[in-house]
Design a binder for these strands. Structure first.
Lengths: 250, 250
DNA sequence: AGCGCCTCAATTGCATGCACTTTATTCCCG
DNA sequence: CGGGAATAAAGTGCATGCAATTGAGGCGCT
């Protein structure tokens, strides 16, 4: 039976998960900009836990690629390069095509209703802060992935979507999201209809247009640090923006 | 207490990574069977570190889906369901199609040589223990992914390949790998030629055949535990092997 | 004998403490 | 007045200790 006794504070005790969620959200809403420092004790104090827990949470986030963890140095919010952003979007396209392929024509009515409700929420937040609409747009895709009932797919889509969100906050300009909302509605429509090929094409072009709208050029519009501005010119050994398949021997 | 203390040069740093690598390898070589218990202190003692580090490593592995981490319970090697195995292979197919799409016609000669050398190693190990040839076959795909120079792609392909490897050890029978070796050679050939469509098709059918060869049926050929044998019949609430897109409301 | 309860060993959850590394500051010298 | 080494401060890396929870075996009851 559910021996749910003596739960001392009803907190649920998923402390690490709580911190991860909070941090993820803060990151994708740009409350924490790429490069922002995340000291363990500051986090611990902020969430009322010890450094051990904060550290563990940072480890998880690092595994997801949202924070960078350099030895003996303060953890920072990840600063993906332009090439990494492109790569993330490429992967995301394939993953989400798989999502809609599995979903096309198989959605129940309550699921469709949930999707429409979400898009309505996106619509309502259109005049709100930019960060919120970006987050909602991302969560639409995650919601879609969850409907596949495939935990693995949910995990990967979530991760890569968060990463794309992060890169959007680095390379994108003020952002216009109405078009995305429309595309979301079209997606739902096609999913309900059940035309697999069509819905996959829609998802592809949707993500492709988001990527192209955002990742305009390798010239960083918002440099926050000298090193980052200089990064594209560094070209230390294997250039990231050209000649992908080169360095072989490890 | 036998091993090196305060060895600052050389290893020194990446204790967690070392444990992760060792565990990963042990898991995919079936030295650790699915469901095997992984107590923190036992791990810590085995690797000469404290529970803190072992715990952190388990956290990482759990994030990769190789171990299951239940609250207040001993961590165990993950025991993916048959449906999860199929899902993993579906994702893997898309990911690796992306890999070869980026690689086709772009490989340098040393890279091709490295790939051929790896397949030769696979060939050499053909008569050795089964676990080793499975590991080598998996590592071939990871090697391929690494040549894309896309860290994200490498991570995802590695993870999903390890997961597939794990499921293979649950659902597959004695295994015959010569055909896979041949398919690897064909893959290299097509990559060198540069016919993108052809190489994508090859990769698709290669992975598909591996999956179909392995994931024969939801009837577990090798039950190692009563609970696992009974698992397919449990059917606790939402069956995993049918009606994918069902439960919607969260 | 079967079934439930109780107690105890095993194990995890988490915080704290200490050593070491990096980073910021200060102070001395050119 | 500027540059660089010494020094202080901040932060991470890791082990250990203690409380809380779980699983198992023993005991009495029916």
């Amino acid at each position: 039976m559910t021996s749910k006794r003596t739960s001392k504070s009803g907190d649920g005790s998923d402390k690490v998960g709580t911190i991860c969620r909070a941090l993820r959200r803060a990151i994708i809403e740009q409350a924490l900009e790429p490069g922002a420092k995340l000291p363990e004790d500051a986090l611990g104090e902020r969430f009322g836990v010890s450094r051990t827990i904060a550290r563990h949470a940072l480890g998880q986030l690092a595994a997801e690629g949202l924070v960078e963890l350099r030895r003996n140095r303060i953890a920072v919010v990840a600063t993906p390069s332009w090439q990494e952003a492109r790569d993330a979007f490429d992967i995301r396209i394939e993953l989400e095509r798989l999502v809609v392929r599995q979903l096309a024509g198989r959605l129940t009515k309550p699921q469709i209703a949930a999707l429409k409700a979400h898009v309505d929420a996106e619509d309502a937040a259109r005049n709100g802060p930019d960060a919120v609409s970006i987050r909602l747009a991302t969560e639409f895709h995650i919601l879609l992935a969850q409907m596949t009932n495939s935990p693995i797919l949910v995990r990967y889509v979530s991760e890569v979507a968060y990463r794309c969100c992060l890169t959007l906050s680095m390379f994108s300009r003020p952002h216009s999201s109405e078009c995305a909302i429309n595309e979301h509605r079209q997606l739902i429509e096609a999913l309900a209809t059940g035309d697999t090929a069509q819905v996959m094409k829609l998802m592809h072009s949707h993500l492709d247009s988001v990527a192209n709208r955002a990742l305009v050029a390798p010239s960083p519009p918002r440099g926050r640090d000298l090193l980052e501005i200089l990064a594209p010119y560094a070209d230390d050994e294997d250039s990231a923006r050209n000649g992908r398949a080169r360095a072989a021997a490890e």
